[in-house]
Lab assay of single mutants.
Amino acid sequence: MAAAAAAGAGPEMVRGQVFDVGPRYTNLSYIGEGAYGMVCSAYDNVNKVRVAIKKISPFEHQTYCQRTLREIKILLRFRHENIIGINDIIRAPTIEQMKDVYIVQDLMETDLYKLLKTQHLSNDHICYFLYQILRGLKYIHSANVLHRDLKPSNLLLNTTCDLKICDFGLARVADPDHDHTGFLTEYVATRWYRAPEIMLNSKGYTKSIDIWSVGCILAEMLSNRPIFPGKHYLDQLNHILGILGSPSQEDLNCIINLKARNYLLSLPHKNKVPWNRLFPNADSKALDLLDKMLTFNPHKRIEVEQALAHPYLEQYYDPSDEPIAEAPFKFDMELDDLPKEKLKELIFEETARFQPGYRS
């Protein structure tokens, strides 16, 4: 834990890192770190609560700039109880001085990944967590956004079992017609939660990839272990087919990539493993919904509104309290091709509203 900075004593240090967030945020305490930044909790002297502050230093890398800009653009436009918001952003007053960006968010005690390492969940908890994931996802999908990296560590939890989806750095506007060349190379989302079509096709992607990830998360809540822990690309596919069985001819016809289709045709026939054999203690309604989410063919996979209306979630289902976005989200430009200098300018502009004396 960093010592509390005395008023006016300059930035606090946390594990050798400068955290320049005073005077409003003090009493910093280390939480963890990701690929390009550290997260601390801090005391907000204005709202009198502890908050989470993520320090991001992305400006050396085009990919990190892209992810940072995506996350900020999306989260500043989203407003939903099951999606983490941005409360404040701290950065230098000029673009030349801006080396880091500090993002202030609600402090959540833990995440689903940490929880599943230590606790076996009751059916009631599984049901409530799944409902909140789908409630947040309904809003995301209504904005025409794909999260693309749903996994237990991106689901934040607090002691009252509130759940918030975080990390929109890989999110995209849904565009089933656009052929994202190089899709697989830039697709760094965790393999275990990846839909089979991501490994088999490169053309376009749809909201059904997020539903697949939610199915993987439900299976993990039922058993405290990942359902498809593939060691590499082909191993991942083999794990999936080992449980779902061989795809039907109709399902194979959806695979545009001939090499991928021929690979699947070359494999020995596998039978589907019954879900109640894998999860003998699970609620039968939970397994019915799991089956509809972990469907090989993305066109037959359940959609988020149908999933919310499934009998497993009937005690929570309330369409009048499951809000959607006001308007579909649009990125003005494809960020993939922009140089990091341009992305830095866009991050600077996007964060201006939090600067003292800002006038829109």
Results as ranks from 00 to 15, higher is better:
Pro298Asp: 03
Pro23Gly: 03
Ala327Gly: 02
Ser142Glu: 09
Leu265Gln: 14
Phe183Val: 14
Gly37Ile: 07
Cys166Trp: 02
Asp291Met: 04
Gln17Lys: 13
Ile84Cys: 03
Leu290Lys: 02
Asp321Phe: 05
Leu278Cys: 04
Tyr317Asp: 04
Asn45Ala: 12
Leu234Met: 14
Leu290Ala: 05
Asp321Arg: 03
Ile83Gln: 02
Asp337Asn: 14
Pro268Asp: 04
Leu134Pro: 07
Ser142Tyr: 01
Leu150Asn: 04
Thr206Phe: 12
Phe348Thr: 12
Tyr30Phe: 14
Leu157Ser: 04
Asp167Trp: 01
Val39Trp: 05
Ser223Lys: 09
Ala189Gly: 06
Thr159Gly: 06
Asp149Val: 14
Phe331Ile: 15
Ile133Lys: 03
Glu341Leu: 07
Glu250Ala: 06
Glu250Lys: 09
Tyr312Lys: 02
Lys138Pro: 09
Glu186Gln: 08
Asn82Val: 01
Ala327Leu: 12
Val51His: 14
Phe168Ser: 00
Gly22Val: 15
Asn238Thr: 13
Lys117Met: 14
Asp288Arg: 02
Met293Thr: 07
Glu81Lys: 13
Trp212Asn: 04
Asn297Glu: 03
Gln105Leu: 12
Ile31Leu: 15
Phe228Ile: 15
Ala6Lys: 04
Phe331Trp: 01
Gln66Ser: 11
Ala171Val: 12
Asp210Pro: 03
Leu156Gln: 14
Phe296Ala: 03
Ser29Gly: 09
Leu290Tyr: 09
Gly242Met: 11
Ile103Thr: 00
Arg77Tyr: 01
Ile227Thr: 06
Leu76Gly: 11
Met108Val: 00
Ser248Asp: 09
Ala174Thr: 13
Ile256Asp: 11
Trp275Tyr: 08
Arg261Phe: 00
Ala143Trp: 06
Asn257Tyr: 15
Leu265Met: 11
Cys65Phe: 15
Leu130Val: 10
Ile347Ser: 14
Ala219Met: 01
Val273Ala: 07
Asn281Leu: 09
Gln66His: 15
Pro298Trp: 03
Leu237Lys: 02
Asn238Gln: 05
His180Asp: 05
Gly8Glu: 11
Ser142Thr: 13
Gly10Leu: 12
Asn224Arg: 08
Ala3Gln: 12
Ala307Asp: 11
Asp318Met: 02
Ser246Tyr: 01
Gly32Gln: 00
Glu33Leu: 00
Ser41Gln: 03
Asp337His: 10
Gln105Ala: 09
Leu107His: 02
Leu264Phe: 03
Asn281Cys: 10
His239Leu: 14
His147Gly: 07
Asn281Gly: 03
Ile103Arg: 06
Asp336Gln: 10
Arg79Pro: 01
Phe59Glu: 07
Leu137Ser: 07
Leu218Trp: 09
Pro268Leu: 09
Leu112Asn: 05
Pro226Ser: 12
Ala143Lys: 05
Phe19Ile: 15
Gly357Arg: 11
Asn276Cys: 07
Gly34Leu: 04
Phe331Pro: 04
Pro311Lys: 01
Lys272Tyr: 08
Asn82Lys: 10
Ala189Gln: 09
Leu156Asp: 08
Glu186Thr: 09
Gln315Tyr: 01
Asp179Asn: 13
Leu115Val: 07
Ile198Val: 11
Gln62Pro: 15
Tyr102Trp: 07
Lys272Val: 08
Leu184Phe: 10
Trp212His: 06
Pro11His: 15
Thr110Glu: 09
Asp332His: 07
Ala2Ser: 13
Asp291Phe: 06
Ser248Val: 08
Ile140Pro: 04
Tyr205Trp: 04
Glu314Thr: 06
Asp175Thr: 07
Leu200Gly: 02
Val18Ser: 12
Ile31Met: 15
Ile95His: 03
Leu234Tyr: 08
Arg191Leu: 14
Thr160Tyr: 02
Arg261Ser: 10
Arg359Met: 15
Tyr263Leu: 10
His239Lys: 06
Glu60Arg: 14
Gly230Trp: 06
Leu278Asn: 06
Asn253Arg: 10
Thr351Asp: 02
Lys55Arg: 14
Leu200Ser: 13
Leu265Cys: 10
Ser208Val: 10
Glu322Met: 03
Ala309Arg: 03
Ile72Tyr: 08
Glu220Ile: 06
Glu349Cys: 02
Glu334Cys: 04
Gly169Glu: 03
Tyr316Lys: 02
Leu170Trp: 08
Trp275Arg: 15
Lys285Met: 05
His269Cys: 11
Tyr102His: 05
Gly245Thr: 01
Pro274Gly: 07
Asp321Leu: 02
His239Cys: 12
Lys117Tyr: 07
Leu76Thr: 02
Thr185Ala: 12
Ile165Lys: 07
Leu170Gly: 04
Met38Tyr: 13
Phe348Met: 12
Glu33Trp: 01
Gln315Asn: 05
Leu313Thr: 08
Ile211Gly: 07
Tyr187Pro: 00
Met221Ile: 14
His310Tyr: 08
Ala35Thr: 15
Asp251Thr: 04
Leu28Ala: 02
Gly357Val: 15
Phe279Val: 11
Tyr43Gly: 11
Tyr128Val: 02
His178Tyr: 12
Leu170His: 05
Pro196Phe: 08
Lys340Tyr: 06
His232Asp: 05
Asn297Thr: 15
Gln17Gly: 03
Val39Cys: 13
Phe331Glu: 08
Ala4Pro: 02
Thr185Cys: 07
Pro247Asp: 06
Thr295Val: 03
Ile211Met: 10
Leu338Ala: 07
Arg135Cys: 13
Arg301Phe: 08
Asp318Tyr: 13
Cys65Val: 13
Arg261Leu: 15
Cys161His: 03
Val39Tyr: 11
Ala171Cys: 01
Thr94Ala: 11
Ser246Lys: 02
Gln17Ala: 11
Ile255Glu: 07
Asn271Glu: 10
Ala35Gly: 15
Leu343Asn: 10
Asn154Phe: 04
Arg24Ala: 00
Ala143Glu: 11
Gly136Pro: 01
